Computed example of a mutant assay.
Amino acid sequence: MDSGAYLASQLAKGFARSLQQRAARLGFSPGQFPILLELWAEDGLTQKQLLARVDIEQATMANTLSRMERDGLIERRPHPSDKRAQLIFLTEKSRRMEKDAVEAAQQADLALFDGFKTFERELTLEYIRRLLENAKKL
């Protein structure tokens, strides 16, 4: 099929499968990875802040955070000044897995580019960035 959107969807699924195999050994899922990345960069965010940084629906975020809490990856604490909000913090377990999780994602990414020359990979990434910018305008 020659549809860019269809091919991008298939590519995302392929990456998720590749990451899933690596992530399962570490104790997280591909859907949790963007949230972990944000919390590794800045721990103690609210759900609203995470929503602004990770492009997923509110209900999906709530369900993912619940699973992450159940699995011991995050803990929620009361917000000091907003009684309706909670702050989301990494647990020691998820802090310890950062290096291995990032490495697993890098390995999954490299697997997608198997057989590509360096310039082909860089050019492909540039094209994808441009496509994503166009998608934001839609």
Score class of each variant (00 low, 15 high):
6 Y>F: 14
71 D>S: 14
20 Q>R: 13
129 R>S: 10
111 A>K: 05
12 A>T: 09
116 F>E: 08
34 P>L: 15
93 K>V: 08
75 E>G: 02
131 L>C: 14
107 Q>Y: 06
36 L>R: 00
120 E>H: 08
35 I>V: 15
128 I>V: 15
94 S>W: 06
84 R>A: 11
36 L>D: 01
19 L>G: 00
35 I>L: 15
76 R>E: 02
116 F>H: 10
100 D>N: 10
128 I>N: 09
67 R>F: 01
67 R>V: 13
59 A>C: 12
37 L>N: 09
40 W>K: 03
38 E>P: 00
47 Q>V: 12
104 A>N: 02
35 I>H: 02
42 E>T: 05
15 F>I: 06
36 L>N: 00
19 L>P: 00
95 R>V: 09
76 R>I: 02
71 D>Q: 09
35 I>S: 03
17 R>Q: 09
111 A>P: 03
8 A>D: 06
70 R>W: 06
44 G>E: 07
32 Q>F: 07
96 R>N: 07
7 L>R: 12
104 A>V: 03
29 S>W: 01
45 L>I: 06
87 L>G: 04
15 F>D: 02
93 K>S: 04
116 F>W: 08
79 H>A: 07
10 Q>D: 08
70 R>T: 05
130 R>E: 07
30 P>K: 04
132 L>A: 13
38 E>Y: 03
90 L>C: 08
89 F>R: 02
103 E>K: 10
16 A>F: 11
115 G>P: 00
133 E>F: 12
98 E>S: 07
109 D>N: 08
112 L>P: 14
97 M>G: 04
125 L>N: 08
34 P>A: 10
22 R>P: 00
129 R>P: 00
118 T>V: 15
123 L>P: 06
61 M>F: 04
117 K>I: 06
56 I>F: 01
92 E>C: 09
53 R>G: 07
133 E>D: 05
116 F>C: 15
125 L>S: 07
11 L>G: 10
105 A>C: 14
13 K>L: 14
61 M>R: 01
4 G>V: 14
80 P>N: 04
91 T>E: 05
126 E>H: 13
109 D>V: 11
23 A>K: 01
54 V>N: 03
68 M>V: 06
128 I>A: 15
18 S>Q: 13
40 W>V: 01
36 L>A: 01
86 Q>P: 00
18 S>T: 10
127 Y>P: 00
73 L>V: 14
126 E>K: 15
78 P>W: 01
9 S>R: 09
37 L>G: 04
67 R>K: 14
40 W>Q: 02
61 M>Y: 03
78 P>A: 15
91 T>A: 05
11 L>E: 13
46 T>L: 07
111 A>H: 05
103 E>C: 02
54 V>F: 03
94 S>E: 03
91 T>D: 00
105 A>I: 00
56 I>L: 13
80 P>G: 02
47 Q>C: 12
105 A>G: 11
107 Q>M: 12
27 G>F: 05
92 E>P: 02
24 A>I: 09
7 L>Y: 03
50 L>G: 03
124 T>E: 00
9 S>M: 05
81 S>D: 05
75 E>M: 12
125 L>I: 09
36 L>Y: 02
103 E>T: 10
59 A>T: 13
116 F>D: 09
94 S>N: 04
5 A>V: 10
70 R>M: 09
62 A>D: 04
61 M>W: 05
109 D>K: 11
9 S>D: 02
10 Q>W: 04
34 P>D: 06
91 T>C: 08
111 A>I: 00
16 A>W: 04
50 L>Q: 03
36 L>Q: 05
27 G>S: 07
